[in-house]
Design a protein around this nucleic acid. Structure first.
Length: 209
DNA sequence: AAAACGGGGGC
DNA sequence: GCCCCAGTTTT
């Protein structure tokens, strides 16, 4: 099966498990920080924030300007800082300090959309889901796994196409793959480990189309 | 449907 | 120095 080959080869390049040991709250906050931001920067900003504050109540009580200073390098800090503070307050006040473990409730939090919620469900709670961002959406279409216009359609199609055992790897593998090889513009098809499985890349290398 | 948010990294 | 980037909310 081609999807098995894709997962196998990407797994050799990107050893999994970078996200899976995070506790749900840290996972939630770091995922909000990661929105429209490269992951190395996200790790750094998350580390700075959590080396200063460890719990929802601590972040809820912190000054917005102090949070801004800690997460500044992740970008959009004037939007993200108050959101993080509000998320922490809601987790503490309305959910007894526990991050919700279902899509419907997660979506009620400020700054949490479908992609962020799925990341929390997969990486924070070990649930079966696929977090579809622009990388997953783009690459799934390039590989011909789907033919879709929106991330929501892509997610739906991937659930039909991909065996459940692989779901948890999809986001992490494709994001990293999408950052250093299968980039939005100027993909490095010559260095691609799955070029033989890619209609788009194969035609690019052979000069066809 | 489109705008707005932003510092960091590649070239 | 210019251009691009792990979404979500607001207009």
């Amino acid at each position: 099966m081609t999807i098995d080959t894709i997962i196998l080869r990407l797994g050799e390049i990107y050893p999994p498990g970078k996200f899976t040991s995070s506790d749900p709250f840290r996972c939630l906050i770091s995922t909000v920080l990661s929105q429209r931001t490269r992951d190395e920067v996200t790790y750094s900003a998350t580390e700075k924030l959590f080396s200063r504050f460890g719990t929802p109540s601590e972040i809820a009580c912190a000054g917005t300007d102090e949070i801004e200073a800690l997460i500044r390098e992740a970008g959009f800090y004037r939007t993200k800082a108050p959101r993080i503070k509000e998320i922490a307050r809601i987790i503490q006040d309305e959910f007894k300090g526990k991050v919700p473990d279902n899509m419907e409730t997660l979506l009620t939090l400020p700054g949490v959309g479908r992609k962020t919620a799925n990341c929390v469900l997969v990486n924070g709670f070990g649930k079966d889901a696929i977090a579809v961002d622009t990388h997953v959406h783009r690459i799934s279409n390039r590989l011909g796994l789907v033919a879709t216009k929106t991330p929501e359609e892509t997610e739906k199609e991937l659930y039909r196409t991909i065996p459940k055992e692989h779901w948890k790897y999809i986001n992490e593998f494709l994001v990293r793959f999408g950052q250093d090889i299968c980039r939005p513009v100027g993909p490095k098809c010559g260095a691609c480990p799955i070029i033989d499985l890619c209609p788009t890349g194969t035609s690019r290398l052979t000069g066809i189309k």
